[in-house]
Design a protein around this nucleic acid. Structure first.
Length: 264
DNA sequence: AATATTGTTCAGCA
DNA sequence: GTGCTGAACAATAT
């Protein structure tokens, strides 16, 4: 479930392993159905280069190439992952793109369901604009005033608004459930019906939940007591031990506790 | 064997 | 024009 905290974890692991090494070769399987992937362009653009640094915006990871030669963009779709390994027999299943470095280690872009994006771009800001991405949810300057200005104008359901990447970038199905669970707000409440205090609560929980998840490397098993995510699967509320309810919101399944999050 | 699954894009509709 | 919703996209596990 690569949402903001998961991509932040991928960023940390890439930063710790794959920077400043000459890229010897790039292997890609072929065209993705959803987003075109161009194996030749990747190989030609990356061979002999190095990854210098990374930046994350929402669920996208941007890897800067040496000598201002632009960026490698990684998006992980629903099932993406990164895997750094040495021995060839450690090659993970379902790897779609393989970067091989001079030290014989490999960085694998893994995607079981193949929804995702791997490509080279020149201009990161232009890319963010083209994809209509709002401010990164964890950006320092995404303060309450900015949140209220954009999010507060939304007309639809609060869960849909949280997941709308053009409003704020980084929150998906799973973390929107967690944020609303912590906030005690039903996912189908209309944004326009929320009062100031509820907006402030949602903003506070947004930052708090993402910060906590990042601190624990997006590993649900390490999340603090009282977090919903580890219990989503068994559909039982971590606080009242009652049964979680589920409902479809914008085509996704929202889980919520009917005790904590009263019906609209 | 039908169904659900993480995200994004886009058609269709208010 | 705008903004929201839900289907489609892939392919795997249950």
């Amino acid at each position: 479930m690569p949402e903001l905290p998961d991509v932040a974890a991928f960023k940390s692991s890439l930063d710790a392993t794959a920077l400043h090494q000459r890229i010897e070769d790039v292997e890609a399987q072929g065209a993705y159905p959803l987003k075109e992937i161009d194996p030749d362009e990747l190989r030609e653009g990356l061979r002999g280069r190095t990854f210098e640094s990374t930046e994350r915006h929402g669920k996208y990871l941007f890897v800067a190439l040496d000598g201002d030669r632009g960026w490698l963009v990684l998006h992980f779709g629903m099932t993406g992952d990164l895997n750094y390994y040495e021995a060839p027999e450690k090659e993970p299943e379902y790897d779609q793109v393989l970067f091989r470095f001079a030290n014989d280690y490999h960085l694998a872009y893994v995607s079981k369901r193949k929804l995702g994006e791997v490509r080279l771009i020149d201009d990161k800001e232009a890319f963010i604009e083209e994809h209509d991405l709002g401010p990164d949810a964890m950006a320092e300057d995404f303060d309450y005033e900015r949140f209220k200005e954009t999010f507060g104008q939304k007309r639809g359901m609060v869960k849909s608004a949280l997941m709308d990447q053009s409003t704020l970038a980084g929150v998906g199905n799973v973390y929107s459930d967690e944020i609303l669970f912590q906030a005690g707000i039903h996912p189908q409440r209309k944004v326009r019906d929320l009062d100031e205090e509820e907006l402030r609560t949602i903003y506070g929980c947004l930052k708090e939940v993402l910060e906590t998840a990042m601190k624990h490397n997006a590993e649900p098993a390490d999340f603090p007591d009282g977090y919903l995510i580890p219990y989503r699967g068994e559909a039982r509320c971590p606080c009242c031990d009652g049964e979680l309810k589920s409902v479809k919101v914008s085509g996704r399944t929202a889980y919520y506790c009917p005790e904590r999050q009263p019906e609209p």
